[in-house]
Each structure stands twice: as C-alpha cells, then as structure tokens.
Amino acid sequence: RGRPVRPPLPTHAPIGFGTPEEAAALATAAAEAGFGRVKIRVGGDQDRDRARVGAVRRAVDRVTGAGTVVLAADANGGWDVATARAAVRWLADHGVAWLEQPTPPGDLAAMAAVRTDSPVPVWADESVRDAASVHAVADAGAADGVHLKLEKAGTVDALAAAVGAARSRGLHVGLGQMDCGRLGCATTAHLAAGLAVEVAELWGCAHLAHDVTDGLILHRGAVLLPDGAGLGVRVGVDPAALTPVGTAPAHPLSPPDRARTFPT
C-alpha cells in the first residue's frame, strides 16, 4: 500500500490597504489563480474601505461567478464601536463571511457590543494568544471565532491548548502566521493539518522580497503537503552572505513590490 494522499490546505489571498482599483486588480489575479478565499484589510476610512470591499466582490464575481469566492475582512482593531457597528451592515451586503478584530484588542466589551447585533460573524485576532485569552473572549461574548498563531501562543502545546479551549466554547478556529517566510508557513501548514482547523492562513511569505527557504508549493489557492516526513521545505543559507549580529547589512533588502502575483 502507498502512503495516504494528504489533501491540499486551502488558504486565502491577502489584500492590503490601497485604492479600490488596486484591490480589484489583486482580487482578479487571486481568483484567476484559483484562490477560493480572499481576506481584505480594513479598519481605516470607512468610505474608502467600503469602496475597496465592493471592488473586490465585483472583481472575484466576474472571474468565478457570484458568491463563489469567500470574502473575509480584518480590521486589526482599527475601528471604534460606532464605526464597526455601521461597517458590519455593508460588509454583510457584500457577503463577507467574517470580520476579524473590529475594535482594539484591550477592550472585549467593545467587541462584544459590535457582535451583539452583527449580521457578520466576529472573530478575535489580536485579543487571543493562549487558552486563557480564548476563555476570556468567550466569557465576554465578544467573538464567534478566534484566529490563533503559533508565534503568539509560544509553543505547540500552548497553541493546541488554545485550539482546544476554543472548541470547548463553541468558537470557530482559524490558524495563521506572521510574514515568516516559507519555513514558518510550512510549520503552520502542518499544525493546521494536525489540529484540523477550519480556516488556515498559510501564505505569509507572499509579503517577503527575499526568502532563504524554498520547496513549499502553493497551487490553485492551496498549500500542498509533502508525502513524506518533514516540512517539505529546504533552507539554503550561504554562510558568506550572513550578517553578524549587531552590524548593518551591506546591501539592505528592498521592500516588496506593491503589486503582487499569485502562483497558479
């Protein structure tokens, strides 16, 4: 018998701040590349955010058909209660599946006030790090789901405990990562598979201009897991190119381009 084939893990295409036209161009590229989920950064000027979300919805619908691509929004704590409560109405009009961290993370009562009558499920992101903070969010009635990260939990055991706490409280569970390169993305992918989370954010390396790791494959909006042991990545570092700690690099890395293409 051969090894069981591990199904690919769907991830989403990230769309940061910019103009509605830029957001539409990125969304079109993502839909054409096979992504079934797009997450849009919001939390700034509400009129501009509304225009950007609308542009993304129209763009993906043109490529794949109405409602085929799932939209999510992440405010990163950028709104007050009144702004967030107004925003969930138009987010719902555009079919947004969930909104992450609409209000500042230090105020669970504010997020609970937004969630009370929100037509869009509210997820906690910056408000959760570990099992204790997950329980605090649940106790406050502040969220329908949580977006967890290994970097914030600190250890695999602590992350697993946070996932368990969320499930015990009836919360949806997502797992993501920072802009950590392919090595970090591969680690998160394996944790997402092992913990069987509902939603995984696995392509943080899209923001990196340079990556010392290769081998992780993104195809049609999903990360392919390796058939054998290991993370399925290769780290290639030239010792001569390393910069000693405490010194400035001779050739600083350039920032990533604003425009982005997505692997197909």
Rank of each mutant, 00 (worst) to 15 (best):
G2C: 02
R3S: 15
R3H: 14
V5W: 00
V5K: 02
R6C: 04
P7S: 12
L9K: 00
P14G: 04
G16A: 10
G16L: 07
T19L: 07
T19D: 13
T19W: 07
E21V: 03
E21C: 02
E22L: 07
A24N: 12
A25P: 09
A29I: 04
E32V: 13
A33Q: 13
F35A: 08
R37E: 15
K39Y: 00
R41P: 06
D45T: 09
D47F: 01
D49V: 02
R50W: 11
A51C: 08
R52M: 08
R52A: 08
G54E: 11
G54K: 00
A59N: 07
V60Q: 07
V60Y: 08
R62V: 06
R62D: 15
T64R: 12
G65E: 14
V69Q: 06
A72G: 06
A72F: 01
A73H: 01
A75S: 09
N76M: 15
G77W: 01
G78I: 06
A84G: 12
R85N: 12
A87D: 09
V88S: 04
A92G: 09
D93W: 01
D93K: 02
H94L: 07
W98L: 11
L99R: 02
E100W: 00
Q101M: 14
Q101E: 15
P105N: 07
P105C: 05
A109N: 12
M111H: 05
A112D: 12
V114T: 03
R115F: 01
R115N: 03
D117A: 09
S118F: 03
P119T: 06
P119R: 06
V120E: 01
P121T: 01
V122M: 06
V122Y: 00
W123H: 07
W123E: 01
A124H: 04
D125C: 13
E126Q: 13
E126N: 05
E126W: 02
D130N: 15
A131S: 06
V134F: 00
V134G: 04
H135N: 11
V137H: 03
A138V: 09
D139V: 06
G141M: 13
G141K: 08
D144E: 11
H147L: 15
L148M: 11
L148A: 11
K152D: 13
G154A: 10
G154E: 15
T155M: 09
A160Y: 00
G164S: 06
A165Q: 03
A165I: 04
G170F: 01
G174A: 15
G176R: 09
Q177L: 10
D179W: 03
C185F: 05
C185W: 05
T188F: 05
H190T: 05
H190G: 07
L191R: 03
A192W: 02
A192Q: 07
G194A: 15
L195V: 05
V199P: 01
W203E: 13
H207F: 12
A209C: 02
H210Q: 13
D211A: 12
G215H: 11
L216M: 14
L218N: 05
L218P: 02
G221W: 05
G221R: 04
L225C: 09
G230D: 13
L231H: 09
G232L: 06
V233C: 09
V235A: 14
G236H: 13
V237H: 05
D238Q: 12
P244H: 08
T247A: 14
T247S: 15
A250R: 10
P255W: 07
P256I: 10
P256L: 11
D257C: 02
P263A: 14
T264Y: 08
